[in-house]
Amino acid sequence: MTNGSTELTPPEVTADDVLRVPDDHFTTDTVAIVTGGGSGIGQATSVALAINGLTVAAVDIDAEGLEETVDVATALDAEGRVVPVEGDLADDDAVEAAVDDAADLGTIRYTANIDGMQHIASLADFPMETYDFMHDLMLRSPFLLSKLVIPHIEATDDGVGAIGNI
């Protein structure tokens, strides 16, 4: 908290705060797709993977947030890089385009499905269009993204990769 206010301020992150994982697959030729890469956990994951040497296709609808993620990774002298991929993950065509864009960056081995949103309302007042959007964003999109990424992982020389759903 700052100056007695109730507003929370995230701590300043340094490259030393990031766990470094020794892995032969963690190179700039290896791509990790991270959804929700423009803020919060998605941004932190994108930066941490870039610091570990990966090329990160950070996907988000928020172009400004994606640029901030790139700036944070650059400021922390990441060994890898964050490439912003703007797209609405509630749209199947945008999900397919994000995977295509990521494949142009290198070998896709990793995906972190992090994107999400929250809407608070009583059941009686909960708008169905919001429910449908949340379903598309947080259930359908990760399923489709995983389905599209698996063939890329299977096509690698050793079939090694991982998909995480948060």
Rank of each mutant, 00 (worst) to 15 (best):
V149K: 04
M117G: 15
L54F: 04
Y131M: 13
G4C: 00
T111L: 15
T2I: 14
V83W: 09
F133N: 12
P142A: 09
M134A: 13
A121G: 07
L145T: 01
V47L: 08
D62N: 14
D16T: 13
F133W: 06
D100L: 00
E129R: 12
M134C: 08
T6I: 12
V149E: 04
D132S: 14
I120Q: 05
L145Y: 02
A63K: 06
L49H: 05
S146C: 05
A63P: 04
P22F: 06
T9G: 01
S5R: 05
T14G: 10
K147M: 06
D71E: 13
T111E: 10
F133M: 11
D125E: 14
I33T: 07
A48I: 02
A102M: 03
D104G: 15
S46V: 04
N3F: 13
M134F: 06
L66F: 09
P142F: 03
N165Q: 05
A103Y: 05
P22S: 10
E96T: 10
A155I: 04
T107Y: 00
I108V: 14
L49Y: 08
V59R: 01
T69S: 12
H135Q: 14
V83M: 05
V83P: 05
P84S: 10
G37H: 10
M128E: 09
K147D: 01
T69V: 13
V31G: 02
T107K: 03
V82C: 03
T9D: 11
M1P: 10
V18I: 15
H25T: 11
N52P: 00
N52C: 06
N3P: 06
G106K: 01
E129Y: 10
A78I: 10
G38P: 01
L89N: 10
L66R: 08
D24L: 03
L123A: 15
V31K: 01
D92V: 04
N113E: 06
L8E: 02
D125C: 01
T2W: 11
V47E: 11
I41V: 15
A48V: 00
A90D: 02
L66C: 09
D132P: 05
E154L: 14
L105Y: 06
L89M: 15
V70F: 05
A155K: 07
P22V: 13
D92P: 11
F126D: 00
A112Q: 07
E68N: 14
V59H: 04
E67Q: 15
G4K: 03
L105A: 09
G42D: 09
A32Q: 02
F133Y: 14
S146I: 00
D91M: 03
T130V: 15
V99T: 06
L123C: 14
F126E: 00
D88H: 07
L139Y: 03
L123E: 03
L148G: 04
E67P: 01
V18Q: 00
R109P: 14
H135K: 07
P22M: 10
G4L: 11
A121P: 03
S39H: 13
T14Y: 07
D88S: 12
L66A: 08
